[in-house]
Amino acid sequence: MMVRSQALRGLRAFLGALIICAPTIGYAASGSEGEPSTRIPTLLGSAFPGWKRVPNAIDMARAAPPDAMRNGISGTTILFCTVTARGTLNDCVVDSEEHPGKGFGEAALSLTPKFQMKPTKPDGSSVSGETVRFPVRFVAPR
């Protein structure tokens, strides 16, 4: 039993990052907290097709900013991206970042190749050229 609990603690420490992939309207402009964003995504609510692929826990742990994780600092970055016909993300920018300068924005951007949306919206039309805004949250291990 002792070995199992030690293994679980090690696994929790290794997989200390979490991703939340829901589309948001949200608040906070680039690099600041609490201000409305000027970027309005086109894929919201019933138009949001859902994710075909997202980063897994190991991808998240590898991308997480090591200094922030080591110091117990968690953070959320809001990304704004254009969606291709295949559902991959292009031209992504950090729309807002919790704890600027701690590496969360760069870490979230490094994960964008791991994301893929379903290529068609619920109404059957293509996602090509649409935009999406979503949070990526990194949780420091305890």
Rank of each mutant, 00 (worst) to 15 (best):
V3E: 15
S5I: 10
A7L: 14
R9C: 13
R9K: 14
L11D: 12
R12N: 07
G16R: 05
I19C: 13
C21P: 15
P23G: 05
T24D: 08
I25C: 14
I25Y: 13
I25G: 13
A29T: 14
G31L: 02
E33P: 13
E33A: 15
G34L: 05
E35M: 15
S37G: 12
G45E: 10
A47M: 14
W51E: 09
K52T: 14
R53N: 12
V54E: 06
P55W: 01
N56I: 04
A57V: 04
I58D: 09
I58K: 11
D59M: 03
R62S: 09
R62Q: 09
A64D: 00
P65A: 01
P65I: 00
P65L: 00
D67A: 13
R70V: 09
N71E: 15
C81Y: 07
V83D: 04
T84P: 07
G87E: 05
G87L: 06
C92L: 08
D95E: 08
D95L: 03
E97L: 03
H99E: 02
H99V: 04
P100Q: 06
P100W: 01
G101T: 04
G101E: 07
K102C: 14
G103H: 02
G103F: 02
E106F: 03
L109I: 01
S110F: 03
L111T: 02
F115D: 08
F115Q: 03
M117G: 14
T120Q: 10
K121S: 04
G124K: 08
G124R: 07
S125M: 07
S125N: 13
S125C: 11
S125E: 08
S126V: 07
S126H: 10
T131S: 09
F134L: 02
V136A: 00
R137I: 03
A140T: 05
P141A: 07
